[in-house]
Amino acid sequence: MVTANEILAETAIHAGKYVKAFPEFGPERMGAPIRAFARISGNPIRVHTQVYEPDIVIVIDPSLIGKVDVGKGLKENGTIIANYRGSSFELQDAIGTNAECHAVDATKISVEEIGRPMVNTSMLGALVKIRPIIEYKEIEDHMKAKFEGKLKEKVILQNVAALKRAYEEVK
C-alpha cells in the first residue's frame, strides 16, 4: 500500500501537481492493518495533518469491509473504491453507506495477472478510472519507469496488465 501511495504521489508530481503522501504514522509491521494518506492539488500543500475528511477512500483489504467504518469522515460528494467481489450496490450495502461506491475484484485480477494477491496496482487502475486525478497513461508510464531495472520485465508487464484490467473492470 505504501508503494501504491508512492506511485500515485510520484505520478501526480510528474503530471505537475503538488502532493503530500504519507503512511499512517507508526512502526512498520508486516501484515498489520494500516492507512496511508495522500493530498493531491494544483497548489502547494500546506496542511500537514492526517486526512480526516477525504474525497476518496480506497479500501485495499476486503476483510475490513463491515468491520471498520471505512466511510468515516467522507465528504458529501466523496467516493469509496474497494477491492470487493460483489457489485457496487452490494458494496454500498456491506459498508452501510449512501455514498458513491465502486467495486473492483482486485484480488482476482492480481492473482490472475501477477500470480499473487498483490492488489496495489489494480487499485490504482480503478482509482484513475473513477476519479481521473491523473491520466491512466501517465500512471502506466511512471510505473514502467519506476520499476525498470529494479524488477524483472515480466513482473513489470504483469503489474501493468493488472493496472489496466482494473481500470477496465471497475464498476
Binding site: E6, A21, F22, I45, H48
Partner: peptide
Amino acid sequence: LDGFILTHAIER
C-alpha cells in the same frame, strides 16, 4: 524536521 509528518511524507 518533524518526525513522520515530514520524514516519512512524500512531497514535491
